[in-house]
Design a protein around this nucleic acid. Structure first.
Lengths: 198, 198
DNA sequence: GACATATATATGATAAATCATATATCAGAC
DNA sequence: GTCTGATATATGATTTATCATATATATGTC
């Protein structure tokens, strides 16, 4: 489970509370390629503490809940380094849109174009958001490993979104070129009254 | 949940047993973009039967377990069509490799190159596998919606794997260009004795 | 004769992610 | 005076996916 090691990686930079970890460190970095909500992060911190990979220092506060400051331990560092160099299974991207297209034979063209268009808009927005993340060019500090490696993860996000946008535009063209179903006019009346469960 | 609708989509072509669904229909098609094992498929079929979207006909057999033949119902077809035209959340690709790179600052170059190289080999193999799936050119049957739409899902798989291969090759170059950590020699001795949990 | 593979369905256990909700207070906006 | 947002942690419930295992027989392979 990568989240465990992502959190370990963040704590390897500096000790933090779960709150700061989530709202500063995590949301600015890891969230882009491994999203997780507050509850999952707190639970994962508990697990890490149980396995001795992080230590906890409680700092009492009168007005607010006590702060629990988490720090990586020696054991945690070893576990992190071992994991960082381990072979990981290659993930499969499960995209509901592929299911919708694969079984879309009886779906009227306008509906397909709408569904594909909505996805295209989201991917274009994501692409634009990635393009706005300011990363200084590596040429300025060619000796900076940190900069170089983190730049690669952003580069992946960009490449992925560009591939999506290209493909979705090809989808729009292809669907437009395809013949429509015979009873396209009836479709809304027949089916859109049914609300899918998700 | 897309698996439910993928199964509904397959049963919309022809009634089937869970066994045939898994070993013929599913593994030849949906598996490439939405993998699922036997137990999940049987459980999902039970759910679909409970909600009345598929019907079950039991065919007794002497030597082997009874065959349960699942067929889509009218309600199932309506649910399928409604879902096929619904807006779906855009998924986020969670790739452990991105976590490994992002936190790889202290990892020796050889280790990074090995990890990236392993991923590259898998993606190259996937790309080759996708390229071997025989799909007749759409030009031969421009009126075939089925062919056109299913071709788009394959096209996505190919585009994704090409983007991966390109990016991973850039990663190899970038990591090679980056300076190595100072204590690269010690790394194996220090850390690889620790076996990560996953 | 032993062992793997195909046919056929099912449950138990666990891990991971998501959503909702609970508690408590302070500061600042309107 | 009320409402929102920041600070701070935690649990419950549910869904989805994965892995292991159970049962039962026939056929073909080594």
């Amino acid at each position: 489970m990568s989240l465990k090691y992502a959190i370990l990686g963040l704590l390897n930079v500096a000790p933090m509370t779960g709150y700061d970890l989530k709202h500063q460190a995590f949301d600015a970095t890891v969230r882009h390629f491994w999203p997780a909500d507050q509850s999952q992060i707190y639970r994962t911190l508990s697990q890490l503490a149980d396995s001795g990979w992080v230590s906890v220092t409680v700092e009492a506060q009168d007005d607010r809940p006590d702060r629990k400051i988490y720090a990586i331990t020696d054991g945690g560092q070893q576990a992190l380094m071992a994991w960082l160099t381990s072979d990981q299974a290659v993930p499969i991207l499960r995209d509901p849109l592929l299911v919708q297209l694969f079984f879309g034979q009886e779906v009227p063209r306008v509906e397909l174009l709408r569904v594909v268009g909505e996805q295209l808009a989201v991917h274009q927005a994501r692409q634009a958001a990635f393009e706005q993340i300011p990363i200084p060019p590596l040429a300025s500090r060619p000796d900076d490993r940190w900069l170089g490696l983190q730049h690669l993860t952003l580069d992946f996000g960009l490449a992925l979104e560009r591939a999506y946008v290209d493909w979705l535009q090809r989808c729009l063209e292809a669907v437009t070129a395809l013949p429509d179903v015979d009873d396209a006019g009836d479709f809304r009346a027949r089916f859109t009254a049914v609300s899918p469960e998700d």
